[in-house]
Design a binder for these strands. Structure first.
Length: 559
RNA sequence: GCACCCGUGGUGAAAUGGAUAUCAUUACUGACUUCGGAUCAGUCGUUCCAGGUUCGAGUCCUGGCGGGUGCACCA
């Protein structure tokens, strides 16, 4: 509808000889200002040399009765043009939701795109970091937005299986003993190794040497410890991804890509890279960035060279890629600018495609309750576990037959909602109480609303009522004015890489539905509008279902 | 030191340069013999400071103040 109005306005502007006018068509904050509003009159007023209101009057005259479903056009304030949609429009949208069902909200804006989406990317030998968890949740949601818009998405995990972190873990296992097959022992070994590295000069040297030995692969015993530890970490990661709802298409390991990265760097010493103090560096200053080391003075590839190798490996695997998106914490923002500058300098054909880095904020807790658990650092795993413990209590009070499944559903919803409710780049202050409160802004609130609709629809069915969109009351319900906006929200959320717009929309939809529910009896046999109210309930259900899918939150039939 | 990001009710957030800054929560008030009260209705309360650009600034520019992050061999 927005596009229809936009096109109609552009046609009029073209007839006046104006092209490329940058104006907005949006939903006004106030419902009294109509369903859509535009500022176009104020934008062209200057170019046309007339007062905004005067321009608006001419536009309204030209548009009057020209747009289907627009019933009334008004001029307001300094020159806003407000469009009021007809009652039939809302009814036709409710009917459309029913028709489209699973496809409701989808578009084909990204059709033909092959998106390589890299996210989560943890350090093996170490419990899943809180940042990895945040990245996973945001990455999965943006992946789904792309898929909902017709793109093909390849989910890629790029775990670090070699390097200092692994060396610390292997060293810890050697020193302390412990079975590399045991995830708990692995975690302890890493903590031990990390502490020693930071505090004991001798240990630091040991670990650095061990790191080099692991790179070379020259010690069978150490190789074996590393191999088993990696397998253990990956198993654990797969478990967590299962709970979170992510399935990777591919995993590229640092150890696999590092040779390619190193060779590429060595081939371009002199033209792209320089030698400096025994290391091979890229001088980012020439493009307004900073210098970074690609090969250290021992000749080992750093994160930089490995990431270069990672990019090349991805490119080789998917030669037809059109977008490469990497999601990490925002402390790596400037780093990725340098990396992208290097890639573009090395491979000129890449400039035709999109390299994108999406950065996520830090997650901290409101209360000291979780973080102060003595000695325990907050990890992605411990956060999820804590939420699950609380969620279990709630799940026991639901109407479900499967408490374990419900616990997981509610816990994941609570966590994902809190992370996805705000702009990906801004820091998240996590409030466990609120996340599970089931009231207001929360994942479980959306799930509850969904389950409730389902229950009402069940009741209606038992009463022998059937959905029908042919008869409806003269005035549209408020909820109808929210439902039809879903596809627009999806489009905007993808363009802005902003799943939080979907969250905000669904929360408003759920709130509006609950209000509708409180004021109108839906399954009432005596009511001639009951079939239409059922259609509305059905439409909200479909919208919630599709929207929650974008967020990676499950919609329970009962709870 | 330099660079990047950020500063919105008590708290947590939203707002392609648009109309009276929105939502949730807290506190207070009110509504259930009800299709699920895990609900609904209402009241109180906000753009860090100083300039500038604009018909119009939370948003853009300049300068402060406050916070976070990054800046050579970690990832």
């Amino acid at each position: 509808m927005e596009k229809v109005i936009r096109t109609a306005i552009n046609d009029v502007l073209a007839s006046w000889g104006f092209t490329e006018v940058n104006f907005a068509v949006e939903h006004p904050a106030e419902l009294t200002h109509g369903d859509y509003a535009t500022n176009v009159a104020m934008v062209v007023a200057k170019r046309k040399g007339e007062a905004p209101r005067q321009v608006a009057e001419q536009l309204v005259a030209a548009l009057q009765d020209q747009i289907e479903y627009v019933e009334k056009i008004e001029i307001a304030g300094p020159g806003f043009i407000n469009f009021f949609l007809s009652r039939d429009f809302f009814a036709s949208e409710v009917a459309r939701v029913k028709t489209l069902s699973d496809a409701w909200g989808r578009n084909d804006n990204e059709i033909g795109q092959l998106v390589m989406m890299e996210y989560t990317s943890p350090n093996l030998f170490k419990p899943l970091h809180i940042g990895n968890l945040v990245g996973n949740i945001i990455g999965e949601s943006i992946s789904r937005l792309f898929e909902f818009s017709g793109a093909e998405v390849k989910r890629i995990n790029y775990p670090s299986d070699i390097g200092l972190t692994v060396a610390k873990g292997v060293w810890g296992l050697k020193k302390q003993g412990g079975d590399p097959d045991d995830i708990v022992a692995l975690g302890k070994a890493y903590v031990f190794g990390n502490e020693a590295y930071e505090n004991v000069e001798e240990a630091k040297k040991d670990i650095d040497d061990l790191n080099k030995v692991l790179y070379e692969g020259s010690n069978e015993e150490l190789n074996e410890i590393r191999r088993i530890g990696i397998a253990t970490s990956l198993r654990r990661l797969a478990e967590l991804c299962g709970v979170l709802g992510t399935k990777f298409d591919l995993q590229f390991f640092e150890s696999e890509v590092s040779v390619l990265g190193k060779d590429t760097v060595l081939q371009h010493v002199g033209d792209v890279f320089k030698e400096s103090e025994g290391a091979i560096v890229y001088e980012g200053e020439k493009v307004g960035l900073h210098t970074r080391v690609f090969l250290n003075s021992k000749g080992l590839p750093t994160y930089e060279a490995k990431d270069l190798g990672n990019f090349l490996t991805k490119q080789k695997t998917y030669p037809d890629w059109t977008k490469s998106i990497i999601i990490t914490g925002n402390e790596q923002r400037e780093y990725f600018q340098v990396l992208f500058a290097v890639i573009k300098e090395l491979f000129t054909d890449v400039t035709q495609k999109d390299l994108e880095h999406i950065s996520t904020g830090f997650l901290t807790l409101t209360t000291g309750k979780m973080s102060s658990r003595k000695g325990n650092v907050l990890t992605g795993e411990s956060l999820l576990a804590e939420i699950q413990n609380e969620a279990r209590i709630k799940a026991e009070n639901t109407r479900t037959d499967d408490v374990e499944a419900m616990t997981e559903m509610v816990a994941v919803a609570a966590l994902k909602y809190q992370i996805l409710r705000q702009n990906p780049g801004s820091n998240i202050i996590f409030d466990k109480e609120k996340s599970l409160s089931f009231e207001g802004d929360s994942g479980p609130y959306l799930q509850y609303t969904y389950a409730r609709i389902n229950s009402v629809l069940e009741k209606a069915k038992q009463a022998g009522l059937e959905l029908n969109t042919n008869t409806y009351p003269d005035a549209p319900y408020e909820i109808e004015k929210i439902i039809y906006r879903f596809p627009e929200v999806i489009e905007e959320a993808l363009v802005d890489r902003a799943p939080h717009k979907v969250v905000g929309y669904l929360t408003e939809l759920a709130g509006e539905f609950n209000s509708f529910y409180a004021h109108e009896k839906i399954a009432d046999k005596e009511d001639i509008n009951a079939p239409y109210k059922i259609a509305i309930a059905e439409a909200v259900k479909t919208t919630l279902e599709n929207g929650l899918w974008i967020l990676g939150i499950k919609a329970p039939e009962r709870m």
